[in-house]
Amino acid sequence: MAALLEVSKLHAAYGPTRVLHGIDFALEEGSITTVLGANGAGKTTTLRALCNMVQTSGEIRFGGVRIDGKATEDIVRLGIAHVPDGRGTFVHLTTEENLRLGAYVRRDKREVEQDFERIYGYFPRLKERRNQQAGTLSGGEQQMLAVSRALMLRPRLLLLDEPSFGLAPLIVREIFAIMRTINQSEKVSILLVEQNAAMALDLADHAYLIETGRVVLSGSADEIKQNDAVRRSYLGY
């Protein structure tokens, strides 16, 4: 399969603080790839760098076309949906308005309306709360909303930043199950950043391990799972 996303020698910095020191990775079309690492390793920064939300240098190709240096909103228009850390909810807008914004760049009005039903099918709870201010939703519901908002773009690639953060295990499992469905039935490729390595490796096909801004290990999810160092440091057995 061809690589949907190819990243080489990616550097990123917040002002004078450099976070990524030239990382390389690739993501195959239709796959779920996960980036693992400890706090502060540069996982979130990697996702932000892909959308040009931090200062970056290096090469990023999406579907063979270079996207590094493009404006965030133009990268989104190419079909990359980003579920940011902290969820990025528009707290003063209703649930439905949040979803509508997810489809902001789409021009196929009729299909957008159908997608509402599709999303509500995945997350019936959002339908119940469609006219409620999004800021009043629970953490789990806001995470569902964030994922749904991203899906409303009909993306080719979904960037997920710590979807399990701060949520009850039951809800995390529900969200992960839906991720798998979306990946399999809708052919959306997913780049998942997670601290919960065990769950991420169960879901993913490929995995990269980054430490202090460098890729230290990569391979299929199964290989990574068997790696002793990973087992000790990240899986805890």
Binding site: M53, V76, P84, T89, V91, V105
Partner: peptide, 10 residues
């Protein structure tokens, strides 16, 4: 309300 999230939806 939220310029960052707004850029992320295009």
């Amino acid at each position: 309300q939220n310029p960052t999230s707004s850029r992320l939806v295009g």
